[in-house]
Design a protein around this nucleic acid. Sequence first.
RNA 1: UGGGGUGUCGUCAAGCGGUAAGACACGGGCCUUUGGAGUCCGCAUUCGGAGGUUCGAAUCCUCCCACCCCAGCCA
Length: 564
Amino acid sequence: MSEEIIKTPTNFIREAIKEDTDSNRFNGRVHTRFPPEPNGFLHIGHAKGICISYGLAEEFGGRYNLRFDDTNPVKEEERYVESQMADIRWLGFDWGDNLFYASNYFDQLYEWAVKLIRDGKAYVDDLSPDEIREYRGTLTKPGKNSPYRDRTIEENLDLFTRMRNGEFKEGERVLRAKIDMASGNINLRDPVMYRILFSTHHRTGDKWCIYPMYDWTHGQSDSIEGITHSICDLNYEDHRPLYDWFIEQLGIYHPRQIEYARLNLTYTVLSKRWLLQLVNEGYVSGWDDPRMPTLSGLRRRGYTAQSIKNFCERIGVAKRESMIDIALLEHCIREELNKKAPRVMGVLRPLKVIIDNYPEGVTEELEAINNPEDPSMGTRKIPFSKVLYIEKDDFMEDPPKKYFRLTPGREVRLRYAYFIACTGCVKDPDTGEIIELHCTYDPTTKGGDAPDGRKVKATIHWVSAAHAIEARVRLYDYLFSKENPMDVPEGHDFKEYLNPASLEELTSCRLEPSLKNAVKGTGFQFERLGYFCVDINSTPEMVLFNRTVTLKDTWEKVQKSQNI
RNA sequence: UGGGGUGUCGUCAAGCGGUAAGACACGGGCCUUUGGAGUCCGCAUUCGGAGGUUCGAAUCCUCCCACCCCAGCCA
């Protein structure tokens, strides 16, 4: 029988490119680009765009550029170009020498603007911003021509030169394309090409006081770079006719633009403007706060580049607006870390356990498997002694149905160690809180198996009190408690939906000693709890972990179903 | 009374005239020294709706409905 062929999931952009290479449309070339504006940090929505543009170029043996669309000096900063480059590299893409800036093309763009003026296709307008808006008309009513629309070419040339020379104030004049004020497509109602901005540009300094608009820059930049497929989001579908018009007037190379629906993720916002607000107003600790959907936040949270690329592959590419369940992102990181992360034992909320029949002052070294999914990762020794810590959750004095862990009189297994049975608990006389457990162990069960074939229903993790290191652990949850925080009714603010419990910091966690010198950024599975990674601010004196994601928790479901 | 776009399972998403892939989520079984992982099973007689063409339609045609985007000297 023929072997199963696993088809790589296709999508309409891949098909479109294939059509073009098959028909030799661009002489068989495939050349894409990712064109971020350096006005914030890249987030997972950008990762989708990067994976599409760069991934497709790689797939077709083509090339890809990184171009910063830096046409608005008032919002852009050098630090953002640096962070964006670092994030793209981290994702695993290398643009080689193909690094560009739209600002590299300012001279060319200026010349082209002059050409349009000479051809009678552009004019300097003296209308104020408010007047321009009025003249533009509305969605259903056509606009009307500016009284300055019919200036002579000579006058336009003179005025535009003087704009460039700084003879006018900001907002006093603009250069506009002369297209059609009655067009159903508002982008074609004489769009502004240049505005006056006395602002220092992070690349060109004070060379210019007029800056090209994005719409006047983007298409020509792609053209200059010989881009074959300009992949962008749906927002720009309406702009395509304008880009076409510019390129046609200029008589230059014409790339093919293809639009896709950008990513939306449940329980988060993916808008640089809103993310900036969270950063600036202190709702998060910065762009790299582990709760942020930014690449730097996800990285700090413990997400790997590969898991994000896998995610981008799985969500597909289409033109319908969608909202991806964040559970899929979590699935992707669990999937990878399950295979790669070393297992380790750590107790987040410690409860002291004294093994009454275990000798005082003795330490045993027990062998533990580093990763059951990957035997090549070997084993390690962990210390065991009379006083231990277990998770508070792993003991209940009065357990509900289906609770398998430690309860008075019940026996459980300490992972890689012994069977223990609980003989009693000590409570705080004032609060009634359980502060200490007394247990006995069965010496014949060393390693975790009973020679008599006796079974236990649960295996719990633990740490030796005398050997454990103390650590801080940050537990993260969704930043928003509303599935779609972008759905904000009139008079409300998306920040009202911030999840007050998105961060919980635990301060006296006890971890197995091997973690003392764990390298920053590395991820571990804390057995039975989840995946955690060493924070960038961790030190050997004060170890700090971030919880990347929990393990799937069947018990939690059982509890929920019982509560219903 | 404008222009552009989209409607297939709870969420994504294949399908391109031959009789609804897959993934996540969800429910259940098995297995288990992580209530983890793994594994097995179930999960759209139906593709926004109504007509039509055809031996045959999610795929073609017609009309209708719903939703999204556009009125920055932002990108």
